[in-house]
Each structure stands twice: as C-alpha cells, then as structure tokens.
C-alpha cells in the first residue's frame, strides 16, 4: 500500500523547510486550500492530501470497516506523516479534519508541532449541557438529503461539472474531481462525521493548538468553538469576522493572518 498514492498526497515548498500539512473537511477535497496553502509555500514544506473516498484518492483503498469511525481517518493521517518523515508538522485541519487531527495528535504527539483547527466540532448533536447545534432528527435529515442526491451526484451532475464550456476559466484537472465523492462513501463519511462524539478525546491532546471559528457558522456555532478552546489545554481561540463554515474559501485572507499571527508571533 502506497500511502502517498492512496491519499493523493502532494508536497510543495522548499525541501527542509518546516512541514505544514493541510487536511480538508467533509464534502470536498484538497482544493479547499487553494487560497490558503500557496501563501505558506515559500517558507514551508506544504503537504496536501485527499481523504480516501474524496478527490483524487484511491477509491479501491476504501474499507468500510476502517472508515466507519474517524479513527480510520486519523490513522491515515499518521501513516502519511510517518511516510513523509518530515519531522513534527503544523497540521491544519478544516471541519471534521480538525477532529481527525486531534485524534492523531493524541495518539502520536511526536509527529505534531502545532495544530490549527478551523471550525472544529467534537460533537454535532446536542447533549445534556452541551450545545452542538443539531438535533438527532436534523442530522438524519442531512443523511436523507445526501441520499436524495445519490443519483444526482453520481450520474447527472458529474458530467456537467466536467465538461461545461461556459463556466469560469478553471482548469479541467482542477474541476474534474472537486466535491465529487462516491455517494456510498460520502454517506458513510457523513455518518462518521456527524454521529461521532469525540469530546472526551480533547483531554488526551497535549499539542498546542489554534482554534479558528467563524462568527456566523451554522455547522459549528461559536459556542462549540469556545467549548473546544476551553477543553483543549494550551489552545488559543480566534474568531473570524466571516460567515459560513468554509473561511478557507470565503475569507482566506483573514484565516491566513490568524495563522501567521499564531505561528510567527511578532
């Protein structure tokens, strides 16, 4: 098993520079970092990858048992870091990948220098004394929505994405895989993401972390970001004045500044 091929790992930036690994969240692939990662390339060895099932990953490596919980994805991250052997890395995780990075850092702290967690949520479903933002019924509704797009995504929309001439000038290579996930894999990933409860894992993490939270995020509400910050020893919290769950696309400049301030304090 070639881990680097399996996860479609790309490495850029000068050799020997401190490593920085970007992990994309649920839904899309490493292109999510297109506005952020290039900024760090001059001073870092920048590593991008796709989770198995997403983007340009090797679909034949998908094992339902391994990926039935986030632990399987965390193991992948550890294997990538082991395979690259670049030394302790700054790992930037978006959305569910911030939890995946936390799990990996708890198990193999020596592989991690610092963590940047963008929109993390250790549990999406409300619980006694905990506001995750969603009820169980609402998550079931999400899963149903994914089912409704089961046929659509796999059969109708994909060719449209690939071949429409009147779209803004984006390269064929870039567009062919973006946000296209095998529907069965996507559904299982959704269940692993939205049905997991990783609150207890926060206490296992010793790696310093920056929690980045959007002011108006319907998926990871502000109080979830605060919860993570409070339960994660040695963490800092930055709230971006941005809307939505994907500041890496919608507010990349703010995100980059927050990261730079954290990683290289004046």
């Amino acid at each position: 098993m070639d881990v680097l091929r399996r996860n479609n790992v790309t490495v850029t930036g000068p050799e020997g520079a401190p490593p920085m690994v970007f992990a994309h969240g649920f839904g899309c692939d490493q292109q999510m970092w297109r506005h952020v990662a290039p900024v760090f390339e001059p001073g870092h060895r920048v590593v991008l990858f796709d989770h198995v099932g997403a983007g340009g990953s090797d679909l034949t490596a998908y094992d339902p048992a391994r990926y039935s919980s986030l632990d399987g994805y965390a193991l992948d991250l550890v294997e990538i870091l082991d395979a690259l052997a670049l030394g302790p890395a700054v790992v930037v995780g978006h959305s569910v990948s911030s939890v995946i990075a936390l799990l990996a850092a708890a198990d193999r702290p020596e592989l991690f220098d610092r963590l940047v967690l963008v929109g993390p949520s250790p549990r999406y479903i409300d619980d006694e004394g905990y506001h995750g933002g969603f009820s169980r019924e609402e998550i079931d509704e999400l899963l149903a929505t994914m089912d409704d797009n089961y046929l659509g995504w796999s059969q109708h929309i994909a060719p449209v994405i690939m071949g429409t001439p009147d779209r803004p000038g984006l390269g064929e290579e870039l567009t062919s895989s973006f946000c296209r996930t095998d529907p069965v894999i996507a559904r299982r990933f959704a269940r692993a993401t939205f049905l997991s409860d990783n609150r207890a894992d926060l206490a296992r993490v010793r790696t310093p972390a920056l929690v980045v939270q959007c002011r108006n995020d319907v998926i990871a509400p502000l109080e979830v970001g605060e919860y993570v910050h409070q339960h994660l020893a040695g963490s800092e919290l930055v709230v971006l004045d941005a809307t939505g769950h994907c500041p890496n696309l919608s507010a990349p400049a703010q995100l980059v500044v927050a990261m730079q301030d954290y990683l290289t304090p004046a």
């Binding site: 649920f26 999510m32 149903a144 984006l170 769950h245 919608s250």
Partner: peptide
C-alpha cells in the same frame, strides 16, 4: 437543516471554486 449543511459543505465551496451548481 440537511440542505443547510449540504449548502455549507458542498454547494458554497462548489460555487466558490466552480462558479456554479446544477440541479442539486
């Protein structure tokens, strides 16, 4: 709610990167 999460995780990124979404 399902649509909202879907919008945030799939459609907003797609609009940002691809410039369009079709028949979702």
């Amino acid at each position: 709610v399902g649509g909202r999460i879907y919008w945030e995780t799939h459609l907003a990124p797609l609009l940002e990167v691809e410039g369009r979404v079709d028949e979702v």
